[in-house]
Design a protein around this nucleic acid. Structure first.
Length: 113
DNA sequence: AGTGTGACACTGG
DNA sequence: TCCAGTGCCACAC
């Protein structure tokens, strides 16, 4: 694995870990922040890899619609939803409620270059 | 080295 | 406005 690739993954982890408690963001937002807006899918892939690496709040990362598309990767249970609800995020049928209010944009919180 | 796949996003009809 | 198709970048085989 090339260092640059690890850097990409590392960037994802860094951003993901910066997500405040009770807040959520989208793959696209992170991808865009990393300079690869069209690689949102890769962000999810990085999150999947993070499961065995560092404790990344992947449950705070959802698609732009606020849908917990990756819950299946959380042990195949509704753990992802439970984690979010535990943080005060209302989730109904894998759908985050008040997404606009809970949405955390890296561009607003983090200073991008 | 090339092909297939993926936890998405965007554009067109 | 909603549904379907296409594009995209990087990883795994």
């Amino acid at each position: 694995m090339k260092p640059e690739n690890q850097n990409f993954f590392q960037k994802v982890y860094v951003v993901a870990k910066q997500i405040p408690f009770g807040r959520v963001t989208s793959y696209g937002a992170i991808a865009k922040y990393l300079g690869a807006a069209r690689s949102a899918r890769m962000v999810g892939w990085a999150m999947n890899a993070s499961h065995n690496m560092e404790e990344i709040p992947a449950h705070r990362v959802v698609n732009k619609a606020g849908l917990l598309t990756g819950k299946h990767h959380f042990g195949g249970t509704n753990l992802m939803q439970q984690l979010l609800e535990n943080e005060g995020v209302k989730v109904i049928d894998n759908q985050i409620q008040d997404l606009e209010k809970l949405f955390w944009d890296p561009f607003l919180e983090l200073d991008h270059e």
